[in-house]
Amino acid sequence: MSIATTAIPSQRLPTRKKSMRFDDRRQLFLLALALPAVVYIAAVAIWPLVQGIGYSFFDYNLLRRGGAKTFVGLDNYVQVLTDKTGQRALINTFVFTIGAVFFEFILGLGLAMLLWRDGRFNRICLAFLLIPVTITPLVVGLIFRALLAVDYGYIGYYLAEWGITSPRGLLAGTTTALPTLIFVDIWEWTPLVALILLAGLKALPGDILEAAFADGATSWQRFRLVILPLLLPTVFLALVLRMMDAFRVFDSIFVTTGGGPGDSTTSLMVYGVKQGLQFFNIGYAAAIANISILCIALMAAAFTLLIRRADVKANEQ
C-alpha cells in the first residue's frame, strides 16, 4: 500500500504537467470542431436576422425604382398592429395556435394513454399514426381541399348535400374556413403530440405507478392525482413545441385558402410572405416577421418557466 502511494505521484507528476497542456489542446480541438457550424449559423442565420431587424425600421420596397430606403422608425410595427389585415392576421394566428394545440393535446393525451402498453401491436399502430407527420404539408392541404370540395369531394359533397354546411363548402365560408384549417392541423400533428407524451409516460417511475395501483385508486383518480402531475413537464414541453410550430403556420393555409376568403384565414406568416415575397415590401414584412419572433420567444420563455416549476414539483413528490 505504502509503496503504491509513493510510486504513483512520482509517475503522475510529469504526465500531470503534460495533461495541463493536453487539456488546453483538447479545448482548442473542441473549439475547432464547433467553429464551422457556429460561423455558418452566424453568417447564414443570425446575420440575416440582424439585417431583418434593420430593414424593419425602413420604408423599403424593392419594386420602387432605385430601391430607396427611408428611415421610418417604428412606423412599420405601428402599421402592422393598426392595419385591419395585420390585426386580423395576429388574431387568426393566436386563434389557430390555441385552438389547434388545445385539441391536439386532449386527443394526443388520449392516444398516448391508449398506446402506453408496450407491445408489438401498439408499435405498429404508432408507425401508422405517424404517417401524416411525414406527408408534405403541401400535399396535406391539397388532400383536404379535394376532400372538402362540394361537387366531387368525399366529405364536402355530403356535408353540403345533407345541409350541414353552406352549398359553397367549409373552406369558402368566412366563419368556417379557419376552424376547418385548425381541424386539418389537428389531423396532421396530433400523433406527434401523442408520441412526445408517450415518451414521457414511458419514463415515469414504475414504483410510484405500482403504489397507485395497489392503493386501489380508480383509474380516473390514478390519472388525475398521480400520472398527470408527474407528466406535467412533458405536457408543457409538448405544448410549447406545438405552439411554436403552429404559430408559424403557412403551408397548409397557403395551399387551401391562400389566406381567404377575405382575410379570414390570413396568418402572420401568410401575411408576411405576401407582403415580402409578392409585393416585395421588405420593411413591412420584416416587421411582421419580427413581431412573430417576439411572440414565439415570449411563449417559449413562459413555458420554460412552467416546465422548471413543474420539474421542481414533480421531484418533490
Binding site: 436576422l49 431583418g52 430593414y55 404559430f247 402572420l268 421588405i282 416577421a289 419580427n290
Partner: peptide, 20 residues
C-alpha cells in the same frame, strides 16, 4: 442558441437571404 434558431419563422431569414 442552436435550438432557438430552429424556432425562427423562415420568413424572417428568407427575405434578407433572398437579397444576399
Amino acid at each position: 442558441l442552436f435550438l432557438a434558431i430552429r424556432t425562427v419563422p423562415i420568413i424572417a431569414t428568407l427575405l434578407p437571404f433572398y437579397l444576399m
